[in-house]
Amino acid sequence: MTAKQDKSIVRSLSVARLRDIGLVLFIVILSIFIQFRNSQFLTISNLNNMLINACIMGILAVGMMMVIITGGIDLSIGSTLALSGMSAGLFVRDNPDAPVIIAVLIGIAVGMAAGFVNGLLVGKGGVLPLIATLGMMNVYRGLTYIIAGGAWVSAHQMNDGFKAISFYNILGINSMIWIAAIVFLIAYFFLNYTRTGRRVYAVGSNYEASQISGTNVDNIQILVYTIMGGVSGLSGILWVSRFASAQGDTAQGFEMNVIAACVLGGVSITGGSGKVPGVALGTLLLGILRNSLPLLKVSPFWQDAIYGVIIMIAIIVNVMVKRTVDKRNLQRRHI
């Protein structure tokens, strides 16, 4: 009996890792392919560029992962990002002499407030996450236009300090990469080494059992949506600083890319499972794709279609792998 158990443990481990390994392999093969087509790909400056461009998606994907682990989804992040970016941008425009940190804090606070409202609707209001965040997506987007009064905040209206947030180099590495790395590390630590972090998994893994074991499920939900809002706010700052403009339609539809990164990274949409390294890989894959299209001389208009196809393939392959594993387990069962 023990021998059989040991084997099954080994197997279940390898199945869990299979997807990660597959993803790494895919990324390697894709990179080699791109490199052959265009030797510009594997240069330091291009890789640096690629990473910088993937940072915002990665930061958001970490937040989204937590939401999805609890069994939810947040479609409002594009709007939240725009709203907080716009708030910060307007502040910088109107107060060019104020310290940059205040603008950053404003952005994050606005994002957290938006996320908190989503969390309340889901946790206390009993609204399906999809519907709640679909509705609030509209509300936040509308608010973005309204506070901007229909105008833009453009590059010359921002002081250098604010623009520097995304262009500053520390140890030769861009600040955005540092920020994303820190977000990933904190998330990893939070999810694996704190009690609350584990509760996030517990709620998604078995909602009722969480209640029975005394977890306040509502609060966990409110927490993850607030975190999601917070990282959206942070991303809003980075976005506005990087592209040096705050517009009403900033990041419209960006939530799809973020969800795609999570799904590719092995986050189960039914909740309960998902890991920070997986999400990092998923983000990396999408980043490489986006970066490589111009290198491969593919029209940028292909990007969305390719994303869509890749997400579709990823979720279907996922199901097929799971079915095969289940079938193998059934065949093993001795009857």
């Binding site: 989804i73 999809l130 799809m256 969800i259 795609a260 799904v263 949409i269 039914t270 029209s299 208009f301 292909w302 990007q303 969305d304 279609a305 390719i306 994303y307 869509g308 196809v309 997400i311 579709m312 979720i315 279907i316 199901v319």
Partner: peptide, 20 residues
């Protein structure tokens, strides 16, 4: 598969095709 995730994916695909 959840309908939400599938139609999210096809949404990106269909709109993407329109752009293509």
């Amino acid at each position: 598969l959840s309908p939400m995730i599938v139609t999210l994916a096809t949404q990106t695909m269909y709109r993407g095709l329109a752009y293509v």
